[in-house]
Simulated scan of single mutants.
Amino acid sequence: MIAILSDTHSRRGHELEGEALIAAREADTVIHAGDFTTETALEAFQNECDRLFAVHGNADEPAVCDRLPTARVVEAGGVRFAVTHRRDGGETGLAMFGRSRGADVVVFGHSHRPTVVETDDLTLLNPGSHADPRGNQPGFATLEERDDGGLEGSIRDPDGTVLESLEIRPA
């Protein structure tokens, strides 16, 4: 399983609970699209997750930014993920960012709004914020490998309620 999170915004720790905590603990790969805010939160994630691939966000303190890249590419489940916190240019900018990295999926954060946008050649995925939704539905995403290739999964509320389902087929 792949767990995808973003926008923790914590001074205390990972702020994971319920199904989000279970997913982070059980996932083979955890992707975080930035804004842990503090090293304490980042280290709490590192202690919870066996394989954490993260980027820093615009609200991360300098010590977090020093430890994490602005963008990265992660290959998991036969799919290529381009990860960033935000990109100027909205959906077009995100799609260009993903295409320039040969990605099947662009994982991003910043808006705290769970979002899935399908383009002709890739998927834009914002899992939302599990801990600081700022007026949006709290969220995180999980993806599982399909027997016939690709991934399927959902964005869910930390209590496990499915907000949106998605399917990803590699190019």
Rank of each mutant, 00 (worst) to 15 (best):
M1F: 06
M1D: 09
I4L: 00
S6N: 03
S6R: 07
D7M: 00
S10K: 04
S10Q: 05
S10A: 14
R11H: 15
R12S: 13
R12Y: 14
G13Q: 07
H14P: 09
E17S: 14
E17M: 07
G18N: 07
G18M: 07
A20V: 05
I22Q: 14
A24K: 01
A24R: 02
R25P: 02
E26C: 01
A27G: 04
I31H: 05
H32Q: 13
G34A: 11
D35K: 03
D35P: 02
T37V: 15
T38N: 14
T40W: 04
T40R: 15
T40I: 12
T40D: 12
A41D: 13
F45D: 01
E48H: 00
E48P: 02
C49S: 08
R51I: 01
F53R: 05
H56Q: 11
H56E: 03
N58K: 06
A59N: 15
P62G: 11
P62V: 12
A63V: 15
V64T: 09
V64I: 14
C65D: 09
C65N: 13
R67F: 00
P69H: 08
T70E: 14
R72W: 02
V73M: 08
V74H: 06
G77A: 05
V79L: 01
V79K: 04
R80P: 05
R80W: 03
F81W: 09
H85C: 07
H85F: 09
H85I: 06
R86P: 03
R86M: 12
D88W: 06
G89M: 02
T92N: 12
T92F: 14
G93D: 05
L94P: 01
L94A: 08
A95L: 04
M96I: 07
M96R: 15
G98F: 03
G98Q: 10
R99P: 02
S100K: 15
S100G: 14
A103L: 11
A103M: 06
D104Q: 08
D104K: 08
F108T: 03
D120T: 14
D121M: 03
T123S: 00
T123E: 00
L125K: 03
N126F: 02
N126K: 09
N126P: 12
G128H: 05
S129F: 08
P133W: 08
N136S: 13
Q137F: 06
G139R: 10
A141F: 08
T142Q: 11
T142W: 07
L143D: 01
D148M: 09
S154M: 07
P158T: 14
D159H: 10
G160V: 05
S165G: 08
L166H: 02
I168S: 01
A171L: 11
